[in-house]
Amino acid sequence: MGFHTFQTSYDWGRLDECKAIARQVEGGMIDLSVGSPVDPVPESVRKALAEAADAPNAHGYPATIGTPALRTAISDWFLNCRGIDLRPLGAGVVPTVGSKEAVALMASLLHLGEGDVVVQPRISYPTYEIGTQLAGAGVLKVDDVSDVESWRHVPGVRAIWVNSPCNPTGEVLSAARLTSIVAAARQIGAVVLSDECYALMSWCSDASPSALSANVCAGSADGILALYSLSKQSNMAGYRTAFIAGDRRIIDEMSVYRKQIGQIISGPVQAAMVAALRDTTAVFEQRKRYQQRLARLVRALSEYGYDVRMPSGALYVWVHALSGGCWQDIEDLAKLGIIVSPGEFYGAPDFLRISSTATDEAIDVAAERLC
């Protein structure tokens, strides 16, 4: 049958006219729209990549499931950075070519299709919906996924997307709310798909709760898949490095399909992933950078007139448009040389998303223009 058609308003080309305006401003354009990292890749990662450039895992075919070193590093990362021991949970792991392909292929790899329903937050990352549409399944958007009564009795629900910390809102779900989602999903035989790509970018605590936390999952990974990415924590978006952890049965089956379609991370990049997962010093230095940039943006946006506060997590400031519509605000900010994301892309056309993934110098210039 192949991929089904999809519909999306997620088209960054729609910002081109405003970018042209912003480029005419003295000092040039400050792009706070796409959340693409700008800081250096950690030295430990670059060294590991270079050393593995001609290793056996480079000139030979790498394993889809990851090298033993990578699988161990993922398990150690969960234990050391999130306080989760995957072994007693019965969890498996598999690396993915970035988190976006994992999200986009998830419904298809779960064999969902016509008559099946995937629940997702109404305001969310667009690829959740696109991936569901590609599989030919139905999308159910709800205001609050932790309000389990909004989806538990809907016929055909097979999977539930959770995103904490959330892109774009920054919301962090408590362990209690995650627990209710996992329990309700298990009652109806659905899979919890927990996008935790910003887990270490939590500004209310050291790390946000995981769907795989022992107190959330009742000591079992059954029916849970958690996704994580190194793109933001280690500035490795171009390396395409991420992984899925959770229900071993589901992951083992997915891995078979992933092998057949060539969704495999190159050997040298797997070595770089190991270094990134073990270099927690670099991760927390990057975390501090983002926290300071966010705080600077929040202060400047507040002085400009926005009703804004520090997000609980993730890398974005999420604010209601002053004009009532995102596109008018985007045009007004473009006249200051600043480009931001339209909330329409994420399901809220009256909001803006402002990214902290810009250099300190760019953030300072943007703040000066806003003040």
Rank of each mutant, 00 (worst) to 15 (best):
P209R: 11
Y228W: 05
A214S: 11
S205N: 10
S208I: 04
G113R: 05
D143E: 15
V162E: 00
A214R: 09
W161T: 01
S146D: 07
V157D: 02
S164P: 00
V148M: 11
R177E: 03
T169H: 12
G136P: 11
S99I: 01
A199H: 04
V148T: 13
V216R: 05
H153V: 07
S146A: 13
V157Q: 12
A102F: 10
A214V: 12
V139G: 00
N167G: 08
V154F: 14
V162N: 00
A137N: 11
S229H: 04
M201K: 12
S146I: 05
G131L: 10
A185Q: 08
S194L: 06
A207D: 04
A104D: 12
V157L: 06
L140M: 10
H111W: 03
P95A: 09
D195T: 01
L230Q: 05
V119D: 01
T169W: 00
V119L: 00
Y198A: 06
T179E: 03
A159I: 06
G170E: 04
E196V: 02
T96W: 08
V97C: 14
N167H: 03
A226R: 05
T179Q: 06
A176V: 14
D195N: 01
V118H: 02
G156A: 09
S220Y: 03
A176K: 14
S180N: 06
A190K: 02
N215H: 06
G131A: 02
V117K: 12
G189M: 02
V118E: 00
G131N: 01
G219C: 04
L200N: 06
S174L: 11
S208P: 11
A175E: 10
S174M: 05
I123C: 06
R152N: 08
C204D: 14
V182N: 00
A185P: 14
A107G: 08
V103R: 04
A107W: 11
G223F: 04
S205V: 09
L140A: 01
G138V: 02
K100P: 15
A211M: 04
V119C: 03
L193D: 02
A137P: 12
H153L: 15
Q120L: 06
A211P: 13
L173I: 11
T132V: 13
E171R: 09
L178F: 00
L140P: 15
V117L: 07
L178V: 01
C197L: 08
